[in-house]
Amino acid sequence: MRTFKVTRMRTCWLGNIWILHVTKFVFILANFTQSFPFNRSQMMNSKQDPGGIFGGYGMGDPNVGLAGSPNSGALLSPLHPYLNVDPSLVGPGGAEYIFPEGASKTRGRFEMAFSQIGGSVFAGGAVGGANGIITGIKETAAAQLTGPVRRTQMLNYIAKQGASSAQALGVVALMYSVFGVIISKARGADDELNTLTAATMTGLLYKSSAGWKKCGRAGAVGFGLAAVYCLYTSKDRIKGVLSSKGYDSL
């Protein structure tokens, strides 16, 4: 039963990828044939059409792109005429993926949570371990330890610092994930507001027993980090908004 499930999953996955590749290949082919030098004059003719990167398709000439039309030639459309469509007219631009019905386009917070927590634990362990190596070398040199004693002491430093920073980072990631999942489930939407709220609440909770001042500071740090992250992830959108504003003022 188990093997059956695994194979089924793989075929599904492969099937999706296969469809993707075929689609991509078709679009690449169409694009390639359109930008072939023989068609240069035609592309120039249709310059005023909003064709995008897939090249302009002359709107005035219904025969453009159809095989056998007098001014296109055989090279222009080796494909089926129905496939010779500007994809930017059909749907929104960008990468085209096929998703299962009812599935969201990115993984939700809960699906990502364990990987994020594990990544944080690993990162904390790596940073703490590196820190432990530095501290260990300094301390053992100062204490003039040599041989097996020094080695054991070094291992202690690395293990202890690595474990403590891994725990700290892991707890922060766990709090963030729990808050993020709860908020996104409660709101029914997953956007930047969730990220900001979850990060602020994480900071507040993490230092909640250290006094008001530290608590507030940790919350502010969380909010700042989340804001930087949000700005970075949505920079394309911000650019788009800014440039469209520029157009409006003109």
């Binding site: 699906e111 364990f114 990987s115 594990g118 690993f122 892991g170």
Partner: peptide, 20 residues
């Protein structure tokens, strides 16, 4: 059930799950 990570990343995933 099918949402498990492929193998090298499964280590991170399981580590995070166990930590939580």
């Amino acid at each position: 059930e099918y949402a498990r990570e492929p193998c090298p990343w499964r280590i991170v995933d399981d580590c995070g799950g166990a930590f939580s």
